[in-house]
Lab assay of single mutants.
Amino acid sequence: MLSDEDFKAVFGMTRSAFANLPLWKQQNLKKEKGLF
């Protein structure tokens, strides 16, 4: 599990902003970052 700081560094957004994205968009971002 990423820390909040690492999460923001990897995804360029906060966890709450990420959580507001549609599920497909979350999955695409995870795949792009190799976290899926």
Rank of each mutant, 00 (worst) to 15 (best):
residue 15 R to P: 10
residue 13 M to V: 06
residue 4 D to E: 10
residue 15 R to G: 04
residue 23 L to Q: 10
residue 3 S to N: 11
residue 23 L to R: 10
residue 6 D to A: 12
residue 24 W to R: 04
residue 20 N to L: 14
residue 16 S to V: 13
residue 29 L to A: 03
residue 32 E to I: 10
residue 7 F to A: 00
residue 2 L to F: 10
residue 7 F to Q: 00
residue 30 K to T: 11
residue 33 K to N: 09
residue 29 L to S: 01
residue 36 F to Q: 10
residue 28 N to W: 15
residue 26 Q to D: 00
residue 3 S to V: 04
residue 26 Q to C: 02
residue 11 F to Y: 10
residue 13 M to S: 01
residue 15 R to V: 10
residue 33 K to R: 07
residue 27 Q to R: 13
residue 27 Q to M: 13
residue 13 M to Y: 08
residue 21 L to M: 06
residue 2 L to A: 06
residue 10 V to A: 07
residue 18 F to M: 02
residue 18 F to S: 00
residue 23 L to E: 10
residue 28 N to M: 15
residue 15 R to H: 07
residue 12 G to N: 06
residue 2 L to Y: 08
residue 21 L to Q: 02
residue 22 P to A: 03
residue 7 F to R: 00
residue 35 L to A: 07
residue 2 L to S: 04
residue 13 M to N: 01
residue 24 W to N: 06
residue 9 A to C: 13
residue 2 L to R: 05
residue 10 V to T: 09
residue 31 K to P: 03
residue 17 A to G: 03
residue 32 E to F: 05
residue 33 K to C: 07
residue 22 P to R: 01
residue 35 L to S: 11
residue 34 G to W: 08
residue 26 Q to M: 02
residue 11 F to G: 00
residue 2 L to P: 08
residue 2 L to G: 05
residue 25 K to Y: 08
residue 6 D to W: 14
residue 11 F to L: 04
residue 25 K to G: 04
residue 15 R to F: 07
residue 32 E to M: 07
residue 10 V to E: 05
residue 15 R to K: 15
residue 12 G to V: 00
residue 17 A to Y: 05
residue 33 K to W: 06
residue 8 K to Q: 12
residue 23 L to G: 10
residue 3 S to L: 05
residue 15 R to T: 06
residue 25 K to I: 12
residue 9 A to N: 12
residue 4 D to Y: 04
residue 10 V to H: 08
residue 23 L to D: 07
residue 10 V to I: 14
residue 27 Q to N: 14
residue 12 G to T: 02
residue 4 D to T: 02
residue 20 N to M: 14
residue 21 L to T: 03
residue 13 M to F: 05
residue 17 A to T: 08
residue 21 L to H: 00
residue 16 S to K: 12
residue 17 A to P: 00
residue 21 L to E: 03
residue 29 L to Q: 02
residue 34 G to D: 09
residue 33 K to V: 14
residue 27 Q to V: 12
residue 25 K to W: 07
residue 5 E to G: 06
residue 34 G to E: 10
residue 14 T to L: 03
residue 5 E to F: 06
residue 8 K to Y: 15
residue 2 L to Q: 06
residue 3 S to Q: 05
residue 26 Q to H: 01
residue 24 W to Q: 08
residue 16 S to F: 11
residue 11 F to V: 04
residue 15 R to N: 04
residue 3 S to I: 04
residue 10 V to Q: 07
residue 8 K to I: 14
residue 1 M to D: 13
residue 1 M to Y: 12
residue 5 E to I: 08
residue 23 L to W: 11
residue 24 W to G: 04
residue 5 E to C: 04
residue 9 A to T: 13
residue 23 L to A: 10
residue 25 K to Q: 14
residue 5 E to K: 10
residue 27 Q to W: 11
residue 24 W to K: 04
residue 30 K to M: 15
residue 34 G to M: 09
residue 24 W to F: 05
residue 11 F to Q: 00
residue 8 K to L: 15
residue 20 N to K: 15
residue 5 E to L: 10
residue 26 Q to A: 02
residue 5 E to Q: 09
residue 20 N to A: 15
residue 13 M to I: 09
residue 17 A to E: 15
residue 24 W to P: 04
residue 35 L to Q: 12
residue 4 D to V: 03
residue 30 K to H: 08
residue 5 E to T: 08
residue 28 N to H: 12
residue 32 E to W: 07
residue 31 K to D: 08
residue 26 Q to G: 00
residue 21 L to F: 03
residue 4 D to K: 02
residue 25 K to R: 11
residue 29 L to P: 01
residue 32 E to N: 07
residue 9 A to K: 12
residue 3 S to Y: 04
residue 12 G to I: 01
residue 19 A to V: 06
residue 25 K to H: 11
residue 36 F to H: 11
residue 20 N to W: 04
residue 19 A to L: 14
residue 17 A to S: 07
residue 27 Q to T: 12
residue 26 Q to R: 06
residue 1 M to K: 11
residue 12 G to M: 04
residue 32 E to D: 09
residue 3 S to P: 04
residue 22 P to F: 02
residue 8 K to A: 14
residue 26 Q to V: 02
residue 26 Q to S: 01
residue 33 K to L: 15
residue 1 M to H: 13
residue 35 L to V: 14
residue 32 E to L: 08
residue 6 D to F: 10
residue 15 R to L: 08
residue 14 T to Y: 04
residue 6 D to I: 09
residue 34 G to A: 08
residue 9 A to Q: 09
residue 22 P to L: 03
residue 26 Q to Y: 01
residue 13 M to G: 00
residue 25 K to M: 14
residue 21 L to P: 01
residue 13 M to L: 08
residue 28 N to T: 13
residue 30 K to G: 08
residue 17 A to H: 08
residue 34 G to N: 09
residue 5 E to S: 08
residue 26 Q to P: 00
residue 24 W to D: 09
residue 1 M to L: 13
residue 7 F to I: 03
residue 35 L to T: 08
residue 10 V to R: 06
residue 20 N to F: 05
residue 28 N to P: 01
residue 34 G to Y: 07
residue 18 F to I: 01
residue 8 K to R: 09
residue 19 A to M: 13
residue 30 K to S: 11
residue 27 Q to D: 13
residue 33 K to Y: 10
residue 28 N to A: 15
residue 32 E to A: 10
residue 9 A to S: 11
residue 14 T to W: 03
residue 5 E to W: 06
residue 29 L to E: 02
residue 10 V to L: 15
residue 12 G to E: 04
residue 17 A to K: 06
residue 2 L to C: 05
residue 1 M to Q: 12
residue 13 M to Q: 01
residue 11 F to W: 05
residue 17 A to W: 03
residue 18 F to D: 02
